[in-house]
Computed example of a mutant assay.
Amino acid sequence: MQTLFQLPVPVAAFVFVAATLVLALSAYGLTRAILCRSGEAKSDLAGPIFTRVGALHALILALVFAQELINVRDISTASAREAVLVGDAFYDLKRYDPEETLPIRKDLAGYVRLVLEQEWDSLAEADILSPEAWAAWERAYVGALELEPATDRQNVLKGIVVDHLREVSGLRRLRENAAIANVQDLFMMAAVAGLVLTSAGLFTHAPNTHNIFLLSIFAAYTGLIVFFVVAFANPYHAPGMVMPTGFENLFMGELAELGR
């Protein structure tokens, strides 16, 4: 599947649409060939059953598609929130004491660099977080815990930094879970079964130009929806990839200099 998504998006979408067209027309043609050998089939149940099967098929596609869009939105929000927390912790450490917290700020800057250079690729290829990024976060977190405030101001800043870095850990887990929670095989089975059964249920209608055209529209649109669901299933893969924009905007100036 990932090999397919290495193609340009229009080409990959065309492959999905072509596959669903072939599947739908084959199911329709095969069912008609088997059940309509002696003239045109007549069935009062054809309309109601087709409507119900088609509705169930559309409902399944809509629910899964909506879930994947929510997943992409949540990861985009979590990534932006994580970048904000890291940036706030970095500059609060500088307010705490520029010299004493320099090693911790270097670890945070290195963490941002690792997220950009390693972790997004690691999540896309292996569905795991970068061990090096985890190590950089751990060093920064331990360093923040070991700070010994000498004033009330430093005490408040330490608490804020520690809370921010703890929340970063949770947001990292959310990003990893999104990569692991990929499209299930059961959904693909339901999508294919719904397409086949709905197309086969139209065997009572003659294969004239209008009917074949309408069946093709149904199959093509189903193929596009399945394509979008699979594309958004892993938010770290193109074409539905969530970009680490927050980290890219953060990794500039002083932070970029310390992270190299």
Results as ranks from 00 to 15, higher is better:
227 F>A: 06
241 M>I: 13
189 M>W: 14
238 A>D: 09
230 V>P: 07
230 V>W: 11
237 H>Y: 02
188 M>N: 14
190 A>T: 08
247 F>S: 04
191 A>C: 07
226 V>K: 02
212 I>M: 15
236 Y>D: 03
191 A>H: 01
232 F>E: 08
230 V>D: 14
207 P>M: 07
196 V>D: 06
247 F>W: 07
239 P>N: 09
232 F>W: 10
219 A>F: 02
245 T>A: 02
221 Y>S: 09
199 S>T: 11
195 L>Y: 07
225 I>H: 04
220 A>T: 07
228 F>P: 09
199 S>E: 07
240 G>N: 07
228 F>Q: 12
195 L>T: 14
193 A>W: 10
222 T>V: 13
223 G>E: 09
195 L>V: 12
204 T>F: 05
214 L>R: 09
199 S>F: 04
241 M>S: 11
214 L>H: 07
241 M>D: 11
224 L>F: 15
189 M>T: 15
235 P>T: 01
246 G>N: 06
206 A>P: 05
234 N>G: 01
236 Y>W: 13
192 V>T: 15
236 Y>E: 01
220 A>D: 00
243 M>S: 10
200 A>T: 09
226 V>L: 09
233 A>P: 00
226 V>G: 00
223 G>D: 08
201 G>S: 12
240 G>W: 01
196 V>M: 04
242 V>A: 05
215 L>G: 14
211 N>G: 03
189 M>H: 06
241 M>Q: 13
219 A>V: 11
218 F>A: 13
243 M>E: 12
209 T>G: 10
241 M>W: 12
202 L>H: 11
200 A>I: 05
211 N>I: 06
214 L>Y: 10
245 T>C: 00
239 P>M: 10
196 V>Y: 01
223 G>T: 13
190 A>I: 06
215 L>M: 14
202 L>P: 06
190 A>F: 14
210 H>G: 08
229 V>Y: 00
204 T>R: 06
222 T>D: 12
221 Y>E: 06
197 L>I: 13
227 F>P: 07
192 V>C: 10
229 V>T: 14
